[in-house]
């Protein structure tokens, strides 16, 4: 089964890269952009077809490696 994991900075954590992108969008004259936060996407293929098992494995993977839970949140999409 295929899964997509999205890792984003927690609310309140400064995102200088997101701020720089906002600045670039402004330079490109895009209007109406309130804010940009940069994150990471991981596409993971698993042996199992069991959603519960996949979610359990992916949660462990996120907590141990893919996300630094001091500064980041993660979301698992199956």
């Amino acid at each position: 089964m295929k899964a997509r994991v999205v890792v984003t900075l927690k609310n309140g954590v400064l995102d200088p890269q997101g701020n720089a992108i906002e600045g670039a969008l402004d330079a490109l004259s895009f209007q109406g952009i309130q804010s940009v936060r940069q994150g990471k996407v991981f596409d993971v293929e698993l042996d199992t077809d069991d959603a519960d098992e996949a979610r359990k494995t992916l949660t462990a993977i996120c907590e141990k490696l893919l996300a630094n839970t001091v500064i980041e949140d993660f979301e698992i999409n199956l």
Partner: peptide, 11 residues
Amino acid sequence: LPGSLMRNAGL
């Protein structure tokens, strides 16, 4: 050690 080292504020 606690905490994390993030991208420099000035990039």
